[in-house]
Amino acid sequence: MPEQGLGSIFLNACLINNFVLAYFLGLCPFLGVSNRLETATRMGAAVSFVMLVASVCAFGIERVLVAIDAPYLRLISFIVVIASTVQLVEMFIRKTSPTLFRSLGIFLPLITTNCAILGLALFQTNKGYSFSQSIAYALGAGAGFTLALVLMAGLREKLDLAPVPDPVRGTALALVLAGILSMAFMGFAGLGV
């Protein structure tokens, strides 16, 4: 594959191939945590951080797996590393900021089963990114996830006040919103990076 600049990898992961709106990764927190703007921002930050750590770890593991010729262990080792990273982050936040810990609550352990993180680790491996490219990719994906989550939360806060027929309220309406957002993000494909 041609050598891609770090900036274009970042923009690509953040806007053009946004993880939530183009790859459908991380939909559960996207729909579950996007009720309030404040929680959405914090969740975005936590996920971005775990993404960065997971990306660095995945890069290291892939090197080891290639060295010992055991690619079939990839999936299992990735998920174990992600789960332990999330556990570490959880312990760290609990020690340093109990307030943040309480406000994130159940969502923190749930980051383990956030497909965006495992997806990031798998995609960067499939694309054969170098170390710095992986970091740019992880930063872009994290920024894109946060952006989508915050946009969605802002829209949903407004929608709470709108008169909506009963069967549509809730998930169905959130999905329509996500569809429209996704159409808007398709416009970024014209950036051509």
Partner: peptide, 20 residues
């Protein structure tokens, strides 16, 4: 549009509304 990501969101939303 149905093959693009937004089509997926819309189709699921439509089914959910119908069942709702």
């Amino acid at each position: 549009i149905m093959l693009l990501p937004s089509g997926g969101f819309f189709t699921l939303a439509a089914w959910l509304m119908l069942f709702g």
